[in-house]
Design a protein around this nucleic acid. Structure first.
Length: 666
DNA sequence: GTAGGGTTAG
């Protein structure tokens, strides 16, 4: 028993989405009040409506509003719609949105407020495959008898465009063009320079990387507030222009937690972790309290700097300040502990807090932890548990899982999971997954298979893929192949000096000095510089970063005399320098410098000098550990009876009693 | 007669 007229049905923009729901309940044919007739807020049903705490309660009450004939009064309808889409839902929010759509559609003359509320709700809904906000907006404009849009309408519609853009960059241009039209309409209604409209447009252009446009809107806006500044700055952070972002940040007269979080996240994104930490420090001095966004970024910085003390501080701050421990912050904590070498703490956090979460984030963080610790068996077990708990894996899950398999030489498992990813989970492998597989075959010594795998890839291999094979050639001392692969990389990307240096090291290790020297000369002539190597160590909350041959540290003199003593002790203990790496040092810029002053040696010496006997020394290095430093560190761990944890660009090295957890396999 | 926008893993 539906009281629908074809006129209404034919015009409703969301009809195809709603049809299944029409049969669920009858719609009233008439209203007991006239649309313009006021309804008292003291009306018992209206009062009852206001006291509802969930959309489910609202839906129950709706039945009584329908029978009393009040449901289609414009004001009642607007309240209904608003409550349906804003109250926290105990089950499916999307069905409440469907329900709210029907209320709009059943109301004879809905108010603008109702339209606006729904346009907003649609832009927040992840369940729609089309831009239903925009459809609703067009529906509103189509008939002059409907209310005229205001600043809320335009801000909400543009926001829906913005969200689509952020969700799916492929639609970018189409979305921007649609948004341009909406913007034109806003201008026609005299709202072109409205603060709220402008702020969304700034964000929209920023999301699409059109910073000149964003800047222009920022300037042309009738007024500017904190949101305008934050949005513009966020745009620059998004396109990686941190300098401009930092200047804007400096010009802001007032900064809130979002301003700070945005610029901190920007530094973390570009890998400037120290800057992020410094800014976090400034933030605390300024009296703005960090929130879960800020702390997620800071944990990433801690993880990358191996700043365990600071990371622990963040953990206790979260508990102390009762910060909402959401899935991402939780993943950040697990990641931080794992990357600081504290896999047991990572496990503790995961089992206490993360395992109960139904999202993939904490699981991915834990898998990633196992991967860098070379714990392939645990990674496989955890993944199987994840499957049995029906947590849907994503592409990141498989990067961690495959990389764990490769570090643990789990050849069969790696193969199986790669197939599983495509076949069962329908995840198309990306370049990173292919990289893991090349690494897996390469480390296992299956160089032919690795190369064949590369030739069969549906996407063209980048230099990372080839350097995985080159690294395998290093491990398995296959010089001919290394030479060939080196040539391929050089043609593909001549700027990848690091790969050429790796090739030179392969040459010199096998005694082919001329080959090594040629490459060195070539690299020097080309003038391209490889990333300078650095190592850092945290000491009671302070970071000490060392470059190769660094003399700038206040304790430089003591460090160098300590190293002199150290090298004598090391020689006595039977250590011999790996001369191969002297000739073309993997991290050296200054060719005069010798092995003893590699950045990680400086950091280790500094750690030994400044910490109590028995303290674990934690070093982080931006590049891979060289063979000689690896050998020397093994000796140092035995000689000084210290645990030394070195995290390099790819994995962990846990030195103890003269051995390393990577079993010299990295 | 009610409302608003910005940030977060490999």
């Amino acid at each position: 028993m539906l009281f629908l007229t074809t006129r209404v049905v034919g015009q409703h923009p969301l009809l195809p989405l709603l049809r299944p729901i029409f049969t669920l309940f009858p719609l009233p044919s008439s209203c007991s009040l006239l649309p313009h007739e006021p309804i008292s807020i003291r009306h018992p049903l209206l009062a009852a409506l206001s006291s509802c705490r969930s959309p489910e309660e609202v839906r129950c009450l709706h039945a009584r509003l329908v029978t009393s004939g009040l449901a289609c009064h414009p004001f009642v309808a607007s309240k209904l719609v608003h409550l349906l889409v804003t109250l926290p839902s105990v089950d499916s929010p999307s069905s409440n949105l469907d329900y709210a759509d029907i209320v709009l559609w059943a109301t004879p003359s809905p108010t603008l407020f109702t339209y606006n509320t729904l346009i907003r709700a649609h832009s927040n809904s992840p369940h729609r495959t089309v831009n239903s906000s925009l459809l609703l907006f067009r529906y509103l404009l189509r008939d002059p008898s409907r209310p005229v849009p205001n600043q809320y309408t335009f801000a909400f519609v543009l926001n829906s465009c913005c969200r689509r853009l952020e969700k799916d960059a492929d639609e970018g241009l189409a979305v921007v063009m649609e948004a341009e039209q909406v913007r034109g309409q806003a201008a026609r209604w005299g709202l072109g320079a409205n603060l709220f409209v402008c702020n969304v447009v700034i964000r929209l252009y920023g999301s699409w990387g059109m910073m000149e446009e964003a800047e222009r809107v920022f300037k042309e806006c009738s007024a500017r507030d904190l949101f305008s500044w934050n949005s513009l700055m966020g745009g620059y952070v998004g396109v990686g222009e941190m300098q401009r972002a930092r200047i804007l940040f400096g010009e802001m007269r007032k900064r809130d937690v979002v301003s700070w979080s945005t610029v901190i996240a920007g530094y973390v994104q570009e890998g400037s972790f120290m800057e992020a930490m410094e800014l976090f420090h400034d933030m605390q001095l300024s009296g703005v309290a960090p929130n879960e966004f800020t702390l997620t970024s800071i944990l990433t910085a801690c993880a990358n700097l191996v700043a365990l003390d600071q990371g622990r501080w963040v953990h206790s701050y979260i508990n102390r300040a009762k910060i909402n421990l959401n899935e991402r912050l939780l993943a950040g904590l697990i990641d931080m502990y794992a990357k600081c070498g504290e896999i047991n703490w990572a496990l503790k956090v995961f089992y206490e807090e993360g395992i109960s979460k139904r999202t993939v984030w904490p699981w991915n963080a834990m898998l990633g932890g196992f991967a860098i610790h070379g714990m392939a068996g645990d990674a496989v077990d955890l993944f199987e548990r994840m499957r049995s708990e029906r947590i849907a894996p994503n592409k990141v899950t498989f990067i961690s899982l495959l990389s764990a398999c490769s570090h643990g030489s789990f050849l069969d498992e790696g193969r199986t999971y790669f197939e599983l990813m495509k076949g069962v989970y329908g995840i198309d492998p990306e370049i990173e997954h292919y990289g893991c597989m090349v690494d897996l075959f390469g480390r296992a010594g299956l160089l032919n298979e690795a190369e064949e795998f590369i030739s069969l890839m549906p996407i063209s291999p980048d230099f990372i893929i080839w350097s995985a094979l080159l690294n395998a050639c290093r491990i398995h001392r296959n010089i001919d192949r290394a030479e060939r692969v080196g040539r391929i990389i050089k043609e593909l990307d001549p700027k990848q000096v690091g790969c050429q240096v790796l090739l030179a090291n392969i040459y010199s290790r096998s005694g082919r000095w001329t080959g090594a020297r040629d490459i060195r000369n070539e690299v020097e002539i080309s003038g391209s510089k490889k990333t300078p190597g650095w190592s850092s160590i945290e000491l009671s909350g302070m970071f000490h970063q060392f470059l190769v041959g660094d003399q700038s540290h206040p304790q430089a003199k003591q460090i160098y005399s300590f190293l002199d003593e150290l090298s004598i002790k090391l020689k006595k203990a039977g250590y011999e320098p790996e001369l191969g790496e002297v000739l073309v040092d993997i991290d050296e810029e200054d060719k005069e410098t010798a092995l003893s002053i590699h950045s990680e040696k400086l950091a280790i010496a500094f750690g030994l000098m400044n910490t109590e006997v028995g303290t674990v020394i934690r070093i982080v290095k931006n590049l891979r550990v060289c063979i000689d430093c690896h050998q020397a560190t093994k000796f140092i761990s035995k000689l000084y009876d210290r645990e030394i944890i070195v995290r390099d660009r790819v994995r962990f090295h846990y030195f103890k009693d003269g051995f390393c957890s990577c079993k010299d396999y990295w």
